[in-house]
Every structure is written in C-alpha cells, then in structure tokens.
C-alpha cells in the first residue's frame, strides 16, 4: 500500500464563527504533486495552515506521515515556503547563507550548534537553486525572484520528504518561474519528494501536478492525467463565465514553444 504523507479527514476550520473550510478531506501519497487552487478567500492558505497545525480545527483530524498532527514531532521531514516569505524587513542584516542555515533548525536539534554535515547540506541546497555564489550578500540586495530562491533553499536544507509551497512562485517573472518549475521537477526526479503547492497559476499547476485540489470552502480533488478537464469544478469555484483551455503536453507550460 502506498504511504500516505498527508491524511485529512473531514476537517472544519472556523474563524470567529465563520466557516472557512467545511468538511475537507484529502489524501496525499508519497511522491504526489498536489496543486491547490481556488479563488481568493477560498481557504487555500487556511488549508495549508490546518495541515501544518497552525490553526485549530473545529472538527476532523490530520495525520502527517501516519502520525496524528497533535503528536507529530518530525518537523525535519517537512520543508515550507511561506506565502510572503520574501516580504521580510529590508533592514534585517543577514546574508543569504545565514538565512539558508536557519533551515537546519528542527525540534530534534534545538540548542545544538551547526555541524559540518549541516554546512554541507546548506551548500548543497544553495547550489541546487543557484545562489551559492551570492551566499555572502545581504539578503535585501537580491531581487524578488532571487530572494525566493533563498527560501526554497532554506526549505530544502533538511532534505525534506514533503515540500509545502504557499504561492512560492507568485511575483516571479516567467523566466524565474520557468527555472522554478524545472527545479521542482528535478527535485521530484532526484529525491521523490512529495510536493504540495498553493498557486493561482492554473497553467503551472496543471502541467506539474498529478493531483488537483480546488478549494472554495469545500474541496474537490481531481487526478490530473492527460485529457483531464476539470472545467466544471473550476467554474464552480471561479465562476461560470470563465473558459478554461487545457492541452495535453506535460512539458514546460509557462513559456510557450
């Protein structure tokens, strides 16, 4: 049986009595690439927060790697890039390497100094996203797309089995997005990492993901295979007046050939 990396059953999240997620269930298997899409305010980020234990569930349960979320302690198995990661304090004095090194921290090594193995992992992660040569630069000196790579490298340091990206490619120009897509593809091929990404870029999600979750208070899961046409579900979420055009090739869909 395939290993379930994330298992959510009938979760309900309410903010101040208003239901934001209503009876959401999903399974993410090892090696899956789940794309989460949906309109603004539909509950995408709330879903991620619920899966990571950042919000209190009114109902339901979440299991990560088979362990109940409330008992889950293996945070080193998860890499996370936050929605607004690059919107940090521009005055914050830190080099690229110092920020990537923060990725070494986990519950298992609190109070332990950085080891040689950690340093090697940091170097590998910076290499993987192409920022090794600027490791001594102040983070605010880099452009938006380059900053995003810092946070992806930080998430990769622990060689995570599950990578969660909350609109990690938003605000990046198409060439950087292209590199980002390729990076994720290479990562999946090399490490078999499970990826969950929230995105507004339907094109990118349809090209990369093997599962699509459309979130608009409720959740609808679709397997993405050649020929998949989730138009009805997308129209339910975004509105009837949209036309969605799908094509079957699974190559880079961001820059048209």
């Amino acid at each position: 049986m395939e290993e379930k990396v994330i298992e959510a059953k009938d979760i309900v999240v309410k903010y101040d009595g208003i239901t934001v997620l209503d009876g959401v269930s999903l399974d993410v298997l090892k090696g899956d690439f789940l794309g989460i899409v949906g309109p603004n305010g539909g509950g995408k980020t709330t879903l991620l927060n619920a899966l990571l234990g950042n919000v209190k569930l009114s109902h339901g349960e979440v299991r990560l790697f088979g362990t109940d979320l409330n008992k889950f302690k293996e945070h080193h198995r998860i890499g996370y890039v936050a929605q607004h990661a690059i919107q940090f304090d521009p005055l914050f004095p830190a080099t690229v390497e110092e920020i990537v090194r923060l990725g070494c921290i986990s519950r298992n090594n609190l109070g332990r100094w950085i080891t040689a193995a950690d340093k090697e992992a940091v170097k590998e992660a910076m290499d993987a996203v192409g920022i090794y040569e600027v490791r001594r630069r102040k983070i605010s000196e880099l452009s938006g797309g380059q900053k995003q790579r810092i946070f992806i490298a930080k998430a990769l340091v622990k060689r995570p089995e599950l990578l969660i990206l909350d609109e990690a490619a938003s605000g990046l120009d198409v060439s950087i997005q292209d590199r980002f897509v390729n990076l994720l593809r290479q990562l999946r091929e090399k490490t078999g990492v499970t990826i969950v990404t929230v995105s507004h870029d339907l094109s990118s999600v349809m090209c990369q993901a093997n599962k699509l979750a459309i979130v608009n208070r409720k959740l609808e899961m679709t397997e993405i295979t050649p020929g998949t046409d989730p138009t009805k579900s997308l129209r339910d979420a975004y509105g009837e007046h949209f036309t969605f055009v799908f094509h079957n090739h699974r190559d880079n869909c961001i820059i048209p050939r």
């Binding site: 950042n54 920020i99 923060l102 100094w113 950085i114 930080k154």
Partner: peptide
C-alpha cells in the same frame, strides 16, 4: 550561545521558526 540560531530564526520569521519545531 546555546539558542543563537533559534533566536535568530524567531527574530527573522516567527512562523517559520514555529513550523521548524522551535517552541
């Protein structure tokens, strides 16, 4: 000295620190 890196993480990005397992 013991918690320098954890304090730096907390200072830079509290949510990120929490998700890394920092109490």
């Amino acid at each position: 000295l013991l918690f320098f890196k954890e304090l730096m993480h907390l200072t830079f990005d509290e949510q990120g620190a929490r998700l890394s397992g920092v109490p």
